[in-house]
């Protein structure tokens, strides 16, 4: 019986495994192997084991700066997406009394997700640009006399674009977790004399922890793996770990890019496993 159940489960899981092995496990292995090779300078690799690529990654002062800048973006984005996402999910679940309306508003938040990220990023240009809406209206009411330069093609713009794109990744899992909180537990807490702050602290937050963890995993892994928002929104002024890696690839320096990639992978893995230690995501999702 148990053996049969195992066979059946493996049959069901096989499509997933057939994707993960050739398109995740093997490619990562290839990257790891490539990181120990020497470049021939023309996009090829010489099968000669070396640690030089890692030495270069850890030796460069640039690496530190890249990580510092990426971590800064990741942290800021996480704080804002969590802050906004949590309260929006809370609003939809606990304040909107009509359930149909809540679901409607929830869908309203997800619709822009159906359009291209790149387009959504470009769409900040007419707003934040030097002659954009924000600057011209601020100058119009006389608050400023020079256009604010930091609005577009700056770190500010990068964070705005991240938050704009990724808040939805916080809202969905937190909404899902909160929607499962039995409203009667909150009524019971009210009856027991709990204040609204205490309800928040002892009921809502602990019970949405899984949603928060899952959302954080999405947001942090996306920001850490991104190069494209940084490149476009900073106007080339800022760099991230992956955007530097992308430059290496553009000049066909695969081994050094691979070494940087392996270091980044390790960093992401450490970060995600720290989050996973706080909740058993699988158990919580499948509950």
């Amino acid at each position: 019986m148990a053996a049969r159940a195992n066979t059946l489960a493996w049959f069901y899981i096989s499509p997933l495994v057939l994707v993960l092995v050739p398109f995740f496990v093997l490619p990562i292995l290839v990257v790891v192997i490539a990181s120990f090779m020497e470049s021939d300078g023309f996009g090829g690799m010489i099968p000669h084991l070396t640690l030089a690529n890692y030495a270069a990654v850890f030796g460069a002062e640039l690496t530190l700066r890249l990580y510092a800048s990426t971590m800064k973006f990741a942290l800021l984005t996480w704080i804002f997406t969590l802050g906004i996402g949590f309260w929006i999910a809370y609003f939809l679940v606990f304040h909107v009394r009509n359930q149909l309306l809540a679901i409607g508003l929830f869908l309203l938040c997800t619709i822009p997700f159906w359009t291209s990220n790149i387009i959504r990023m470009i769409s900040w240009i007419p707003l934040l640009g030097k002659n954009g809406l924000v600057n011209s209206s601020l100058m119009g009411v006389g608050l400023i006399h020079q256009p604010l330069e930091f609005l577009l093609f700056s770190d500010f713009a990068v964070v705005v674009a991240y938050v704009h794109q990724l808040t939805i990744f916080m809202i969905v899992p937190i909404f899902n977790a909160m929607a499962r909180i039995d409203k009667r537990t909150i009524e019971a807490a009210l009856d027991a004399g709990a204040s609204r702050y205490e309800i928040m602290r002892y009921i809502v937050v602990p019970l949405s922890k899984n949603g928060i963890a899952l959302g954080s995993i999405f947001v942090l892994s996306i920001v850490m793996g991104d190069f494209f928002v940084v490149k476009v929104m900073s106007g080339g002024g800022s760099a991230s770990i992956v955007s530097a890696l992308f430059e290496d690839i553009a000049v066909l320096q695969y081994p050094s890019a691979a070494a940087a990639a392996v270091v980044l992978l390790l960093a992401v893995v450490v970060m995600i496993s720290l989050i996973l230690r706080t909740v058993d995501v699988r158990k919580e999702i499948a509950r």
Binding site: P27, I28, G225, V242, F246, A257, A258, A261, V268, V269
Partner: peptide, 9 residues
């Protein structure tokens, strides 16, 4: 969670 570009490479 793997960075997309890394996996792509």
């Amino acid at each position: 969670v793997a960075p997309g570009l890394v996996l792509g490479i």
